[in-house]
Design a protein around this nucleic acid. Structure first.
Length: 236
DNA sequence: CCTATGATCATCT
DNA sequence: GATGATCATAGGC
């Protein structure tokens, strides 16, 4: 515990050991469910935020998975997906959001796991401040009123959804390609995987024709899991 | 609780 | 020029 100060919300039996690169050197549909219960840590100048993953989605290889960014081969955006496993692939979408993935399989493959939701187990105050865009002095509650505003978001909402998770952990453009398997600021800890009986799978959220590939995995009953949404083409 | 809608821009066609 | 691995908000129930 002394080696990982600040992560105190986990049960004592959780492991602080790092997941090594070989963990990610597998097909994303195999890595994804194995990531549930693991803890993603980001140490930044502002402090530490750690998130216990509760919901993930696998995105497959070029030609294999039409929903994957890598489906049509390597481009500038998805280049990191084709790099070595265990690195962060962060992309910008909808003109305003970032989403984070962990790269899988050997270098050159083009596969990853999207981090869709988790429970903030350390640094909730910092995560909250990132959400509101306001500085929250230590010890001060966020000066929020009004239901439903980001400032009023309860801790369980801080990393519920891929863009919220990225905000909570402070991930943006500059984190695309960051190695998570070294002694750098971003690491994945073994944590405490859930009882396998609580791991569910189903179609991925918001992907067209996604019903045929049940590559979304989550911890059943966990309040931080995001709501499932079917793909809807947007009106012009 | 739920559904509908607008915001906003990098990326690829 | 169209699209998107989303979210906050408004309004209905």
């Amino acid at each position: 515990m002394a080696r990982t100060p600040g992560v105190t919300a986990e049960p004592a039996s959780a492991s602080w050991r790092l997941l090594d690169r070989s963990f990610f050197d597998r097909h994303p549909a195999e890595v994804a469910p194995d990531l549930l219960g693991r803890v993603l840590v980001h140490d930044s100048p502002g402090g530490r935020v750690a998130v216990r993953l509760t919901e993930v989605e696998a995105y497959g290889l070029p030609g294999e998975d039409p929903a994957s960014h890598s489906y049509r081969g390597r481009t500038r955006r998805n280049a990191v997906m084709f790099g070595p496993p265990g690195h962060l692939y962060v992309y910008f979408i909808y003109g305003m959001h970032f989403c984070a993935n962990l790269v899988c399989m050997p270098e050159g493959s083009g596969a990853a796991v999207l981090l869709r939701a988790g429970e903030v187990v350390a640094g909730a105050e910092l995560a909250h401040a990132r959400r509101t865009g306001r500085r929250v002095p230590p010890g001060e509650p966020a000066a929020d009123t009004g239901t439903g505003t980001p400032a009023a978001a309860p801790v369980r909402e801080l990393a519920r959804g891929p863009a919220r998770l990225a905000v909570a952990l402070g991930f943006a453009r500059e984190h695309d390609g960051v190695d998570c398997c070294g002694e750098g600021p971003v690491r994945v800890l073994e944590g405490l995987p859930p009882d396998p009986a609580r791991v569910r799978s189903g179609p991925r959220t918001g992907v067209p024709n996604g019903k045929h590939t049940p590559w979304r995995f989550w911890i059943d009953g966990d309040p931080t899991v995001s709501p499932y949404r079917e793909h809807r083409p947007r009106a012009r």
